[in-house]
Design a protein around this nucleic acid. Structure first.
Length: 441
RNA sequence: GUUAUGUUUUUAGAAAA
């Protein structure tokens, strides 16, 4: 029953999930338990419906279903994803507070990790570190997930060196003689921690994205030497780094290596390659990989579809790209902002501005707001079609929707103004751009 | 198959001049 509830929630079918939870049809032999409730609350939170989840919490009280740690952790995650970090933290403070001294549910390591992640994603790593200290005070020891969260977030902020230092500490925790007090966190963090594949994946991926391929490869070798098995994420990440640097041969050999090691390439691995081949004029190879995915029963997600749509347009197969989009809709996939932007850009490139407008319409009907990329594409499209006025109107439209133009937007429009011989407007735009503090390149 | 299956935290791929 709980498994069914889980799938229903994942699919967003809450009516059925609630029916089952409350046994509205009176046909289920199993009582709903705390897991059932947790699952539905989790589902609501995942879909951004925190309030609904909170409603279920009161229902649990009414029905006398006891909370557990999962319940609170799910709620904290829900608050974090809504940006209500303070609320999440209050939940934790309540769980760790004196009022909850005996008998009650205490905050646990997952809860703290959730909070730390929430703050880190908001760019507040220092709050993350503070939380790590307060968890120790509350008697909860940080684990490898805590470290991984902080390490990844330090990378994201570009502070690779600190991330590495933190990893070294993580390793030294394991090593009792290393703790002579000079390191800040190893003393508090307990013993027995080991860097794992996720630790390495974060660092490797960051290096790859900075085109520091050799360092990435070195760490890849290092993890193997330590007996940590690379997983599909490791491989996909390194392959991505190699391909983005045009090192196809090495990427291919890694692909074979992973298969040999018994790690199955997944939709991410494939889409990385497919994207590369489309962008490097090897449409045939890209398409053959696509059918290989089908043969191997790898499901297409949103990104795979986006890669295909974008790629087909880029190799001049607009018809096939549009069909692919239809395909996505038919298979009940959910196009997102990026999917729509790829489609719209493709249509712009072939000058089908009517098509663009109708997709734009559809996008809005589905409650996806065009973003700066979408708008810039459209502006560029109108400019290239010689419809400067329409382009300018899009700019107004965008500003009126509080979407801030960036360098892409301006340069498309300025380019158009020059071509139309309205130099004064172009210069006006340029001034406007500087005024707004957009980088001029 | 019963230190079995289910709910919570960290890492990889996609769009514009």
């Amino acid at each position: 029953k709980n498994i069914v509830i889980h799938s229903l929630c994942k699919a967003g079918d809450f009516d059925k999930a609630l029916d089952l939870l409350r046994d509205n049809n009176g046909s289920c032999d199993f009582e709903s338990d705390v897991v059932s409730y947790n699952t539905v609350i989790w589902g609501f939170c995942k879909h951004g419906l925190l309030e609904m989840g909170l409603g279920l919490v009161s229902e649990m009280v009414k029905r006398g279903v006891e909370f557990d740690n999962f319940t609170f952790n799910i709620l904290m995650k829900g608050y974090c994803e809504k940006g209500m970090l303070r609320n999440a933290e209050l939940v934790m403070e309540m769980l760790c507070g004196d009022a909850n001294r005996d008998g009650g549910i205490r905050g646990d390591v997952v809860g703290f990790n959730t909070l730390i992640h929430g703050y880190c994603k908001d760019g507040k790593v220092s709050n993350g570190f503070q939380l790590m200290e307060s968890m120790v005070r509350a008697g909860v020891l940080p684990d490898v997930v805590t470290y991984n969260t902080l390490i990844d977030s330090l990378c994201e902020l570009g502070d690779f060196d600190s991330a590495k230092i933190l990893m070294d500490e993580l390793l030294e925790c394991n090593d009792s003689r290393a703790n002579d007090g000079e390191k800040r966190y190893s003393l508090v963090s307990g013993v027995g921690l080991q860097a794992d594949n996720i630790t390495y994946n974060s660092l490797i991926d960051w290096c790859g994205k900075k085109y520091r391929i050799e360092e990435a490869l070195a760490m890849y070798k290092e993890m193997i030497a330590k007996g940590i098995d690379p997983d599909v994420v490791t491989y996909s990440s390194v392959i991505n780094a190699l391909l983005k640097s045009g090192r196809l041969a090495e990427a291919k050999s890694l692909f074979h290596e992973m298969v040999q090691e018994g790690v199955d390439p997944n939709h991410v691995t494939y889409s990385t390659f497919v994207d590369y081949f489309f962008k490097n004029r090897s449409a045939m190879v890209a398409l053959s990989l696509q059918s290989q995915m089908v043969v191997r029963g790898i499901a297409f997600d949103n990104v795979v579809f986006t890669v295909l749509i974008d790629g087909l347009f880029k190799v001049g197969r607009a018809r096939a790209a549009k069909d692919m989009f239809q395909n996505l809709l038919d298979s009940n996939g959910q196009p997102n902002q990026i999917t729509y932007s790829a489609l719209i850009d493709g249509l712009c490139k072939i000058g089908d501005m009517e098509g663009v407008e109708s997709v734009l319409q559809q996008m809005k009907e589905r409650n996806f707001q065009p973003n700066v990329v979408t708008y810039s594409s459209i502006i560029n499209g109108y400019v290239k079609s010689g419809m400067l006025e329409a382009a300018i109107n899009v700019m107004f439209d965008m500003v009126s929707h509080d979407v801030v133009p960036n360098a892409f937007t301006y340069s498309a429009l300025i380019d158009g103004c020059f071509k139309a011989g309205t130099k004064d407007i172009a210069e006006g735009l340029f001034e406007d751009m500087k005024f707004r503090g957009v980088d001029e390149n």
